[in-house]
């Protein structure tokens, strides 16, 4: 059976993986944006900036759960992030 027929009746989902430094670790880029841009330009009220990388996948699968678990697996197994220093959260957006 080829993969096409397996995916019959499936839908396209948007899955986002957000990769960012663990919250216990310093984020120098966020700090610089906060201090040298926001604060120096007089923006007040912002206490922290942290950066992240967002990967946006379009996944064809039968269910929202399948799409999410596939991307979770991809992120973990293919080391799309380094678990030593980063966290990765996966979220399924609306169906396309």
């Amino acid at each position: 059976m080829d993969s096409k027929s397996l995916l019959e009746g499936s839908k396209l989902w948007v899955v986002e993986a957000r990769i960012q430094l663990k919250s216990s670790l310093k984020d120098p880029e966020g700090e610089t944006i906060l201090r040298d841009l926001l604060h120096k330009r007089g923006v007040s009220g912002v206490e922290e900036v942290r950066t992240a990388k967002l990967l946006r996948f379009k996944v064809r699968s039968h269910s929202r759960e399948d799409a999410e678990s596939l991307i979770r697996k991809v992120c973990d197994e293919l080391r799309l992030y380094n678990p030593v220093s980063h966290t990765c959260s996966v979220r399924v957006g609306e169906e396309v």
Binding site: L21, K22, L25, K26, P28, T32, P83, V84, S85
Partner: peptide
């Protein structure tokens, strides 16, 4: 168990 050593990670800040 590389994960167990997470506290040893150091974030580089070349700007400083």
């Amino acid at each position: 168990d590389e994960e167990g050593k997470r506290s040893a990670v150091q974030i580089p800040d070349p700007f400083i």
